[in-house]
Design a protein around this nucleic acid. Structure first.
Lengths: 259, 259
DNA sequence: ATGATGCAGTTGTCAGACAAGCTGTCAAGC
DNA sequence: GCTTGACAGCTTGTCTGACAACTGCATCAT
């Protein structure tokens, strides 16, 4: 089996790309798909190892390792002498907030409201607890966003990084944990990026965003929690309005002409 | 892949006891334990297959199948030629907010802060969006809590139900979803119930709680979002103080005498 | 000091063999 | 006719040996 020629780093980094292209992983995935798609019903039996070996053109070892993976997933239960049976157990615990349809406006807005609840409070706590270094980092992120805006580049990631820095400044890791869990679901990147790269950013819009960011950073710097919360609320409300507009236009190109 | 054999055995029931006593399952469990207990650090390498074969007294096939299970768990990443490395990924998809130690005060408080962020905003949205029926339900829950308090019974569940009703009144299911996900982790029931059942509830404390609940319910009823948020903030801040006291006493029975 | 090469050790896959267990069929007994 | 036991065929579980592909490190040449 050939792998790509690129040499991996000598030490494993947490962000090292996963390499799951082995045969057993592939067979496991195919079987997993067959099970989850209902081709094999719950309680039903997979083909025998010998049959899978033949039909997938791999050795029995590969088939067995694939089945071992499915066993760990809780998808199958092998019974010696009898066969490998699909169990009634669903794959893993339910992921939170899964039922998000990025193309449904209300779905995304609902998640945004939840996220904003956390971010408003985070701003208040950040004002009370931030360290000087965290204070500085917040301003730095504001500057990065402003630069990206002037260049007409996408600010989605930089904006998110600012919010994460504010969450860090609460010195309660649960806030970052929450935002990381939720962040990618709350803003469908495709829609936003398409709109952002496709049009000129008005300079009054730039100034508005800058002013809002500055108001938040200043309130946090002054350690005024109420002002920080209010500044964040204004920013997010404005962002929500902007986001609604973006989404409406992305979903319905004729929307603006009808306004 | 051929048509799978779908003839179920007559003896398979969803509640059939699992038979997982195979060697590979055993080795997988031992390795899993070693990894989760930190014997092998994250980023560290498991012993080679040959070494595991020797140390566990099993064939290499068994070791490989065990490793396949761990791979499915996301605990390890085998790298051909290099070894099997413990990944930074926790078992399965990350469960949110898992690292909660109920006996560590700061751990619970951190989660409470996150929860309170959501609840404060929920109160504001509930004021804007509640239906008359939801309005009534909130008052009813207040009455239930008051009754339970007068009887000296535990109000933990009734209190949580009130907060869920407020979340429902936002008419954004994400708020309830969040609270349900987080609710049981945020208040360690053992500690709170022990303290609650063990002492007399002062009547001024009762009145304070009642007043706070009423202020929230009234603001929501009047559809004043800012007042609702502020009332909820006061209630939760007071509750946080009370909770800190409870926890400190539960952890250190001599705490009150030293105050 | 740097780059290339070789080698020992590692994982990935294949094949064959035997053990343990399950299922279905058939015959014997009641 | 129904139940029970025996048996054959098939299945999974484990072991063993072999080779391919890959990695990491030591050594050597420039």
């Amino acid at each position: 089996m050939k792998t790509p020629e690129t040499k991996p780093p000598p030490s494993l980094a947490p962000t090292a790309p996963a390499r799951r292209s082995g045969l057993s992983a592939r067979v496991a995935e195919e079987l997993r798909r067959a099970i989850l798609s209902g081709v094999v019903p719950i309680g039903g039996k997979l083909p025998s190892e010998a049959a899978l070996t033949a039909s997938h053109g791999v050795s029995r070892t590969v088939v067995r390792e694939a089945i071992a993976e499915l066993r760990a997933d809780g998808l199958v239960e092998p019974r010696q002498g009898a066969g490998v049976f699909v169990t009634a157990i669903a794959a893993g615990p339910p992921q939170p907030f899964q039922s998000v349809d990025p193309m449904r406006l209300s779905s995304a807005i609902e998640l945004l409201e939840l996220r904003y609840a956390v971010e408003i409070e985070a701003a208040g706590l950040a004002a009370l607890r931030r360290s000087p270094a965290q204070d500085e980092a917040i301003f730095e992120h504001c500057a990065v966003i402003e630069r990206l805006m002037r260049e007409g580049a996408s600010t989605v990631e930089a904006d998110f990084a600012l919010h994460l820095t504010i969450a860090d400044a609460t010195n309660n890791m649960r806030f970052r944990e929450f935002l990381e869990m939720l962040g990618e679901k709350a803003i469908p990147r495709r829609a936003v990026q398409r709109s952002e790269s496709g049009e000129e950013t008005p300079s009054d819009y730039l100034r508005q965003i800058q002013a809002e960011h500055r108001a938040i950073a200043d309130a946090i710097s002054r350690q005024e929690d109420e002002a920080a919360r209010e500044a964040m609320r204004i920013h997010l409300k404005g962002g929500q309005m902007r986001y609604r507009k973006l989404l409406r236009k992305a979903l319905d190109p004729t929307y603006q002409t009808s306004c």
